[in-house]
Design a protein around this nucleic acid. Structure first.
Length: 286
DNA sequence: TCCTCCCTGTTC
DNA sequence: GAACAGGGAGGA
């Protein structure tokens, strides 16, 4: 389940594989994996991958269309390929002769700067993930993109306090809401709430300033520590090199319901908050 | 603001 | 053979 640290790791590992490559023929093997707002992927042929980045949980390939086969696209600025990995999405590059796997949803031919022919695969077992080729005007029509909240790693305590103000829903629901913060999912919501000593069910607008500052600090700390460990691999997650992350070995609560709290030794409680499985310590989190 | 559904492999 | 995993869309 790629969240911010995993998508960041995918971007970092994919970058050296696709930077300055030219896109060639593209194929969508499962139509539902292409976002309805997307440009047809074949229109990207000839575009160069200028940069690989991330926004929230979205992987972003910035494209330079100046040599696109589609002459109407050559003047486009801000052309991008956005990929949402959702639960089981993966990207990888493979040699030109490699056939698609059973879960390969999109294929792009690639030409490396050295002239080698390769392919970029988007694989996704559960087919929740999405690919979207877009100009800025298309992105502006995508409500998910338009409403995406700020990057948690860029936030200051005062900004975070303002985001929580007037929100009467559970802290965990607020952390998971991509319109509030971009990139936090179930793992890092649970881990940061434990680190901050806050009950996931507590109403967001009941935090004192020191508590919201502490929560932001803990969230940023957890995200940065996970990025340093190349993310968390629960089941499916792999980076663009096919490697697993290591942060799952540092989980204090996620997936540890019933086990002893690392802080007080009492059993961790498993419950449902905001429709998600949630693990917390009833003693340490208030 | 909360619930259900989408999707499929894994676990019980 | 059902429950579960869960991000986000869409509806109540």
């Amino acid at each position: 389940m790629p969240e911010l640290p995993e998508v960041e790791t995918v971007a970092r590992t994919l970058r050296p594989q696709v930077q300055d490559c030219r896109l060639g023929a593209a194929q969508v093997l499962r139509s539902s994996s292409l976002h309805p707002l997307s440009l047809p992927l074949e229109r990207l042929a000839g575009a160069r991958v200028a940069a690989v980045g991330r926004r929230g949980k979205l992987l972003l390939l910035d494209l330079d269309p100046s040599a696109a086969v589609d002459t109407a696209l050559r003047a486009a600025t801000g052309l991008r390929l956005a990929i949402h990995l959702r639960m089981t999405g993966r990207v990888r590059t493979v040699e030109a002769a490699c056939p698609p796997g059973p879960y390969t949803r999109c294929v792009f031919a690639l030409r490396t700067p050295a002239g080698e022919a390769r392919q970029l695969f988007f694989d996704d077992v559960r087919a929740f993930g999405l690919v979207l080729a877009a100009t800025p005007d298309i992105l502006a029509r995508w409500s998910f993109w338009r409403d995406l909240g700020p990057e948690p790693l860029d936030l200051k305590a005062a900004d975070f306090a303002a985001l929580l103000r007037g929100r009467g829903s559970a802290l965990k629901a607020v952390l998971l809401d991509q319109k509030v913060l971009a990139g936090v999912g179930n793992i890092y919501a649970d881990e940061s709430l434990f680190a901050a000593g806050l009950d996931p069910r507590r109403k967001a607008d009941t935090l004192r300033p020191a508590q919201s500052a502490r929560l932001l600090h803990c969230l940023q700390d957890v995200l940065l520590r996970s990025i340093a460990q190349r993310g968390s691999s629960i089941r499916d997650y792999r980076d663009a090199n096919g490697d697993v992350g290591a942060f799952q070995n540092s989980f204090a609560v996620y997936g540890r319901g019933g086990e002893a709290c690392v802080r007080c030794g009492r059993p961790l409680q498993k419950l449902r908050v905001a429709g998600r499985s949630t693990v917390c310590c009833p003693h340490c989190q208030r």
